[in-house]
């Protein structure tokens, strides 16, 4: 039922989107497609595109939610990007999920779809030596249809406004620290998924109400079929079997990490803006929590923070797993 509702809702919401640059032939040829909803993220885009191009993503589908910084025009110029624009409410499209569902259904059936935000950088086992097609081919061969990843919040050492971010630079060069082992996991039996919370956001901004801390479990890579839908952002997918990206009988399934480079110098301004706009989850409750404390320009670093090196480090720390891919 829920899936049906999301599915038809997505079809209805297609009216929100108006095409800016749609490169049909290139989308059809691509086997791995990235879908991203963004708003005023121009400064992050050059590195974002470079990162995923190097990974082997063949085409990018962007939904530009009313950017005012020229990001949409920048993307429309790229040969491997297709861009749609909308001025509709982010909140009322269920935080972008409806738009993603529609674009994926319309363009990506039978393809692997990677859904990330502009500040999320996907890391999977062997990502330094094998392109993403190696992963998707292997998943196809294993008859696995989705790939889970935990969001890992990255933060700089010292106040976040200290080092300004410039376009084209690796954000992980600035925000290179993360929390290695303070995550809590519970099972979401309704959706057969895990509910992961914790990390620096939880210990800094939600220490009095940890239950409200943002969810960190995501299913960013899905082999799309007609009828597949994201329920809430990319945290939950339906049909439910796609959420089963973890092993509950004792073993480890292959999974990755989404490096979340949200906490750059642009963050404090962003938090204030989003808190006022109220377009994010639960009336931007998360952003209000940030805005309250980010004024103090908090330092999220502590002496137990880990410095990011590569995926192997994350694998050893137990934040991701190679599963039986070797």
């Amino acid at each position: 039922m829920r899936r049906r509702r999301c599915y038809y809702r997505a079809i209805r919401k297609r009216r929100d989107l108006s095409p800016v640059a749609v490169r049909k032939d290139r989308i059809r040829k691509a086997r791995t497609v990235l879908i991203c909803v963004l708003r005023n993220e121009l400064v992050r885009l050059p590195y974002f595109l470079d990162y995923y191009r190097a990974m082997g993503v063949e085409h990018f589908l962007f939904v530009d939610n009313d950017s005012s910084d020229g990001g949409g025009a920048f993307l429309a110029e790229q040969a491997d990007c297709s861009v749609w624009t909308t001025a509709a409410s982010y909140r009322r499209s269920r935080y972008g999920a409806d738009w993603i569902n529609w674009l994926a259904r319309r363009w990506c059936c039978g393809r692997w779809v990677l859904c990330v935000d502009v500040d999320e950088f996907f890391v999977y086992p062997f990502c330094d030596t094998r392109p993403i097609q190696a992963l998707t081919d292997w998943l196809d061969g294993s008859q696995v249809k989705s790939f889970g990843a935990m969001m890992l919040d990255m933060y700089p050492k010292g106040p976040i406004t200290r080092t300004p971010y410039e376009a084209g630079r690796d954000p992980m060069a600035i925000a290179c620290w993360f929390d290695a082992g303070n995550y809590t996991i519970a099972r979401n039996w309704l959706y057969c998924s895990l509910w992961i919370q914790g990390g620096p956001r939880s210990r800094m901004y939600f220490r009095d109400a940890p239950a409200q801390a943002p969810a960190l479990n995501k299913v960013p890579l899905v082999k799309w079929r007609r009828g597949t839908v994201f329920v809430s952002s990319t945290h939950l997918v339906l049909p439910r079997s796609l959420n089963q990206v973890f092993e509950d009988g004792g073993g480890e399934k292959i999974c990755g990490v989404l490096l979340h480079a949200k906490f750059l110098d642009t963050f404090a301004a962003r938090a204030r803006e989003e808190a006022a706009r109220g377009e994010h989850y639960a009336a931007a409750q998360e952003y209000r929590a940030y805005a309250d404390r980010a004024e103090a320009d908090a330092d999220m670093w502590c002496m137990w923070s880990e410095k990011y090196i590569n995926w192997r480090q994350l694998e050893i720390l137990g934040l991701m797993s190679k599963g039986n891919w070797a």
Binding site: A149, M150, L194, E247, G250, I254, C255, M320, S321, N324
Partner: peptide
């Protein structure tokens, strides 16, 4: 064989996005 062991047994005492044993 290490990969197979990781998939079937996993690292004991680890709870993560790919391993959450009952």
């Amino acid at each position: 064989s290490k990969a197979i062991l990781r998939r079937t047994e996993g690292r004991e005492g680890l709870y993560m996005a790919g391993r959450f044993p009952r």
